[in-house]
Simulated scan of single mutants.
Amino acid sequence: MDNKRLVLGLGGTVDYEIVWDSSVLEGLIREYDIRADELTTAVPVSSERALVVTLLAFVRDGVGGERFVASSEIIETFSARFQREITLGGTCVRAAIAMRTLGVTCTLHLVSIDDHVRRLLPEGCAYICSAEEDSTDPHLIVQFGAGVRVTAEDIDFTAPHPNRIIYANDPPNRDLVIAEELGDVLSTADVFMVAGFNVIQDEVLLEERLAHIADDIDRMPAGSLVFYEDAGYHIPEFATRVRDRILDRIDVYSMNEDEMQSYLGRTVDLLNVDDVEKALGELHAAIPAATLVVHTKYWSLARGERAAELRAALQGGITMASTRYCYGDGFTVADYEAVGRLAVHEGGVQMAKTLETNDVTVAVPAFVLDVRTPTTIGLGDTFVGGFIEAYSR
């Protein structure tokens, strides 16, 4: 497949993936005299102590998230305490890596480059980059499994669910400079996947980038697809600015269950149809997208104008993300095919049937996944890759 047909942006990252070790965190709890009533995700991450406080709060609640860190030195210091692996991240790059496993290549838009990126980009993928020189600003990726326990001082909890947290201070992605040649590349593209506005922290800069990307999207051929993957915004009110500026150019607006619940300001019982329908109604009122996609641990759904054509894409996204969950980095075509034969979640089946009440809703159940050490990093990104790979077929 011509890699210029599928364009994924807007920025990749260099990731430090640490191996979970409760004993290290317990040592830090004692070293910093951290108490249970301090645990919160709301404090600024201005020190290693603050990072530990927020990380423990995420794990205690079994939820994922993304937080801004005052400096990359905090990430270097904390990650050096653990066994770690250097990988590539960012929604566009992880999606591209997943797609390449099934033989599909793309063109990536990057905002930073270094030798790690050159070495680890998937074979056969082209890229354009707005950076004028090399730089490395690592993202800390912490994943944890259900049942991991942390106990020190008066802190004692067990994670109820597996998930992942991202910590970063990444100036190139925060500035998100758009390459001048992106418009030319999009002029012949079938699909453009957009992600990355969530880390911008300057209002004027955000408006400039949105104006630029809107002009570039307008150069795409008739019938092409613009896919937007949401994320946790470092400045929450900027999410509304992004929607106001480019929502009319987005064909598919996608998010995971954590992002949906964050927008709603409450938890949603994902296996209760009344609660889910109420949530989807509230979500669509806040985000009146042409087609909304929500991907969760039990089901994935498309609702809107193009929903009817997205069943295979939803299935591709679920299968790809589930394969990464089970096999981690380096999964194979055989792994992907094996996951596609797994039993599906009965609750997800019933939800999917019930949610498909009209011709503008398509829902697909997730698989039953029983893995001792699951991979929770990059599942949303991998869902995107599986979705676009299947859609492109």
Rank of each mutant, 00 (worst) to 15 (best):
V59H: 10
I178F: 05
V364N: 06
E38F: 07
R324T: 06
Y253V: 01
T323F: 02
P172D: 03
I75Q: 01
V93R: 10
S71Q: 02
N169C: 03
I75C: 01
E203Y: 08
F68C: 09
G317I: 01
V194E: 06
I250P: 05
T87G: 12
V43G: 14
T382F: 13
R35W: 11
Y327I: 11
I166Q: 00
V111G: 01
E356D: 00
D134P: 07
V242F: 05
G9E: 04
A285E: 14
V199Q: 14
V117H: 08
I74P: 10
V150Y: 05
G304R: 06
Y263L: 11
G347C: 02
T54A: 15
Y263G: 00
R119V: 04
F383D: 07
E346W: 06
S322I: 07
L88I: 05
H295A: 07
V111P: 00
D33I: 06
D175P: 03
V360L: 15
R241P: 03
F387I: 07
V177Y: 12
E85K: 15
V294Y: 11
R81P: 02
D329M: 12
Q315S: 15
L355P: 08
A312D: 14
F157L: 01
D359N: 02
R341F: 08
Y16I: 15
E277L: 10
T296N: 02
V43C: 13
H212I: 13
D244H: 15
D115I: 06
S23L: 13
V14E: 15
C125M: 07
I97Q: 11
R49M: 04
R100V: 03
S187Y: 07
I377L: 13
G380Q: 00
M255W: 03
L10G: 04
A50Q: 03
A189E: 02
A168N: 07
G11D: 04
V69A: 09
M255G: 08
A334Y: 02
A80S: 15
L225K: 12
A334L: 06
I377S: 13
G328D: 06
G27L: 09
D248N: 14
M1H: 14
R303K: 15
D175E: 15
A286W: 04
R393D: 14
G27D: 09
A307T: 03
D335H: 13
L310Y: 11
V293L: 14
N3Y: 12
R209K: 10
L379S: 03
T319P: 10
L108A: 13
E38C: 05
T375E: 12
S262K: 07
H139D: 11
E337Q: 11
F78W: 10
Y327G: 08
R164P: 00
V53H: 06
R35L: 11
I318M: 04
V19E: 15
Y253M: 00
